[in-house]
Design a protein around this nucleic acid. Structure first.
Lengths: 204, 204
DNA sequence: CTTAACACGTGACGC
DNA sequence: TGCGTCACGTGTTAA
């Protein structure tokens, strides 16, 4: 265990006198390269307090794990929903082109201040005309959501006339349903939307 | 430069014989820690071919940069995934159903003017996610309007993926179109809506 | 004075 | 044989 002094007790390897300097030079170069890498690594790892090698390595390890976890979350997030706040989003108002019956003002709506607005899903919209009801739902793509929505609609004493579901992007669906209220039963649109929204809260 | 054997030739610092072993022991511990960190780092960096320290550091650096870039892309993607949307005409605001997030005046909007409100047509709405574009048009029922709309959409360098037209009530249509922008061409949603609206002004 | 970290030269091992 | 890499012991320096 204890190192003895092999002054000339070279049982193993002898060093050529000329190449001896090559060795220490090569070793210097190696250390230099390692040092550079350490510096480079520490420069891309944010928030390092200690700059010694062990800490750099340790923090780099933590950082890599953190990044990997974050990527996992982000990739899942793009697949899934970010719900929690299921809202009936208010729609952004664009200055109407022909708002009133007078449809002569044509170029009054050049001010598109906010195109990239954040939208929370699902977005539920309904409108009624006589007995016809149109329901439009923009929601996260989930298996069985159409059936659930349709059954929910039918449970509200609405007979479905037509329905379509369009995939939009790779994570959302746009469902359009036209239904009819039967008999004397009529429902205020706001109530319909509230019920649908409540159903969505149960779904997801 | 050349290492001499300072058995007692202490030009600089003398080492207490007892603490001399402490020194080499501490150094061993330090090296051990570094080795562990290296192993740990190499274990979380995928696809390492060379296992020497310089390569581990170098690949770890590349990997961290790669992860950072990927996160940037994913975060931008999630931002882009929030659909940008433009509605042309004024739309009726549905009060958020009794909930926390929208704490506006809760049920003050129940007045009767919502359902029986006169709506100005056509109503054009578009939203985009990545290359997908969704167009919804609520307009008066007119023969040939679907064909005109579709040809107009195609003339805007959009390839139609799906389209549906639903009769709603007895005098209006609800047209939903999903299209894709081809190639590098991209169009701001507001421009798309403006063009469609302009086309409608010519149609009707 | 202790503690910790570093760079250095050096022997050893593998290709 | 050389070339590259490693771990070791050691001297040195800064907190």
């Amino acid at each position: 265990m204890i190192k003895t002094r092999p002054f000339s007790s070279m049982a193993t390897t002898t060093r050529s006198p000329s190449h001896a300097q090559d060795h220490i030079l090569a070793e210097r170069k190696r250390r230099e390269k390692l040092s550079q890498r350490f510096i480079a690594l520490s420069s891309i790892v944010p928030g390092l307090k200690k700059m010694d090698k062990a800490s750099v390595l340790g923090d780099a390890i933590k950082y890599v794990k953190h990044l990997q976890e974050k990527i996992k979350q982000l990739e899942e997030q793009t697949k899934k929903r970010t719900v929690e706040s299921v809202v009936l989003v208010k729609r952004y108002h664009l200055p109407a082109a022909d708002d009133d019956d007078d449809h002569s003002n044509s170029s009054s709506n050049d001010d598109a201040d906010d195109d990239t607005r954040r939208r929370s899903l699902p977005e539920i919209e309904a409108r009624a005309s006589e007995r016809d009801v149109m329901i439009r739902i923009h929601c996260e793509k989930q298996p069985g959501v159409l059936a659930k929505v349709l059954s929910e609609v039918e449970s509200l004493r609405l007979s479905i006339v037509n329905s379509s579901v369009l995939p939009f992007g790779n994570s959302t669906l746009d469902i359009t349903i036209v239904a009819q209220m039967d008999g004397e039963f009529s429902m205020k649109v706001i109530e319909l939307v509230k019920n649908l929204r409540l159903a969505f809260l149960k779904f997801m």
